[in-house]
Design a protein around this nucleic acid. Structure first.
Lengths: 137, 137
DNA sequence: CCTCATGGTGAGGTAACCTCAGCGTATCGT
DNA sequence: ACGATACGCTGAGGTTACCTCACCATGAGG
């Protein structure tokens, strides 16, 4: 009963978060999954496509697709890996760096008002509990 | 920075929740979206398709699809609404009632171990904070 | 009774995933 | 040195869970 409503609450909050994310990203015409990839790339720099996939928790084939789209928009580029000719390195272009930074900024101010609305103590609590859930087996 | 990891944590937990839900539902060959519909129907009984859509936060057209699938599996049935011949009522069949109950049971025991792993105080805290987030404008 | 609104659905589209097979490249055992 | 095996990426094609738009039948108001 209680768990039931917990799950429901979780689901409701997730939905709101998704809606907000979508709205925040609109100005850049970047989808949520693309923005996640930009985030990984700006945190890790140049990485192999397979590593990108791993960080995003998606199949390598799916990463190929995300990278295709970002490349078409000129936000990332593929380079050969000098140490392994099978592999491709993916890196942000200058435009990609700028976009990633702008999005990061926007999320911090606009998008996450949801969390910002909590008082600091509650935010800490929430973070603690989420990390418990994250690591529970 | 802190909000960033909050968002990330939230996302990670959501993913784990989705994985678990999928696994829990496997024995019944019911998809997550179908199970949500079964849940609504077992809580509300017979409802109009449009009401079902509203409860699920999806477009009426999408509800049509979910109901199609559930009907094919014999878990729900469509009946004419005696008060409005345009409308269709959707109701669980006896099999649907049984399946919905079984799934509810399974989620309470198996699926939500994630939350069950928290101690009761943390569960209460989490519920309180999630409800704040839910209602924040 | 004529107009306009409403409930459901066919047609067709999208995002974000997936698997499977294949091609080219690397690595390892003998 | 070389053949078998494993790995990195991508083409082809599929799935899930949504969406909008147009339409049809029915209902409700002036």
């Amino acid at each position: 009963m209680e768990d039931d409503s917990l799950l429901e609450s979780f689901w409701a909050v997730t939905r709101r978060l998704r809606e907000r994310t979508k709205i925040t990203l609109e100005p850049w015409h970047v989808s949520p999954s693309q923005s996640r990839a930009l985030g990984v790339l700006s945190r890790h720099g140049e990485v192999r496509l397979s590593v990108l996939a791993e960080r995003l928790h998606i199949a390598p084939r799916s990463a190929t697709e995300v990278v295709d789209d970002l490349q078409e928009r000129g936000l990332v580029e593929r380079k050969p890996d000098p140490t392994d000719r099978r592999a491709t390195l993916v890196a942000l272009t200058p435009g990609g760096v700028a976009t990633a930074a702008a999005i990061h900024e926007a999320r911090a101010t606009e998008g996450e008002r949801l969390f910002a609305g909590l008082d600091p103590a509650d935010r800490t609590e929430l973070a603690r509990i989420l990390n418990l859930l994250r690591e529970a087996r």
